[in-house]
């Protein structure tokens, strides 16, 4: 393990910490690292860093490390942590901000999670609502898991739970324009 020289790390990370705090509206200095978030996180077992360590990395400004972590993508946004946090540190909001930052920076560690999100939103942009069938097919191709859940399709269709044709809303131009304006507005982090 490499020794971290704190004064240079803190200098280098100051702007990152401030930006994350501003975008997420979360004061990471409130956190006293009790670990209650990690203790109650149902997905923590699969993470490379425990949730409280994600906050710690933001506190220190360890930008590269936190933005390339798997942990931020494995948060299920279940809100357990903020429900129990003694310091009201909104970790789900922080995770959202970190994922968006990682996405912008191109350091997404969980490619499939981001891929799924993207395909989902593309589908919504196209049809106004996601079309599971085409979305899952594209997801399987792009993620290289051709056979994933293939037996689900017929099972779902048999039960009337998946349709071949996408359900398209008539006014899907309105939804496309929402996507277009959002793209032109640089994310609205400042709001």
């Amino acid at each position: 393990m490499k020794t971290i020289e704190l004064s240079s790390v803190l200098t280098a990370g100051k702007a990152f910490t401030a930006k994350v705090e501003a975008d997420s509206k979360v004061n990471v200095r409130s956190c006293y690292q009790c670990g209650k978030c990690s203790a109650g996180c149902p997905a923590a077992y699969a993470m490379d860093y425990a949730p409280h360590q994600v906050i710690r990395m933001v506190q220190l400004g360890l930008e590269d490390r936190v933005l390339s972590s798997h942990a931020i993508w494995l948060c299920a946004s279940c809100e357990n942590c903020i429900t129990r946090c003694p310091r009201d540190v909104d970790l789900p909001a922080l995770m959202d901000t970190l994922r968006r930052a990682a996405y912008k920076k191109g350091t997404v560690a969980e490619k499939n999670v981001a891929l799924f999100n993207n395909l989902f939103l593309q589908s919504v942009e196209t049809y106004g609502r996601p079309h599971e069938m085409s979305m899952m097919m594209r997801y399987n191709m792009k993620s290289g898991q051709l056979m994933k859940d293939v037996f689900r399709g017929p099972e779902l269709m048999k039960r009337g739970k998946m349709s071949l044709r996408p359900e398209k809303i008539r006014d899907n131009g309105a939804v496309r324009r929402i996507f277009g304006r959002v793209r032109a507005s640089s994310g609205g982090e400042q709001l």
């Binding site: 975008d23 994922r99 939103l121 959002v182 609205g188 709001l191």
Partner: peptide, 9 residues
């Protein structure tokens, strides 16, 4: 998907 990608969206 949206809140992980873009707050405004």
């Amino acid at each position: 998907a949206a809140h992980n990608t873009d707050r405004l969206l």
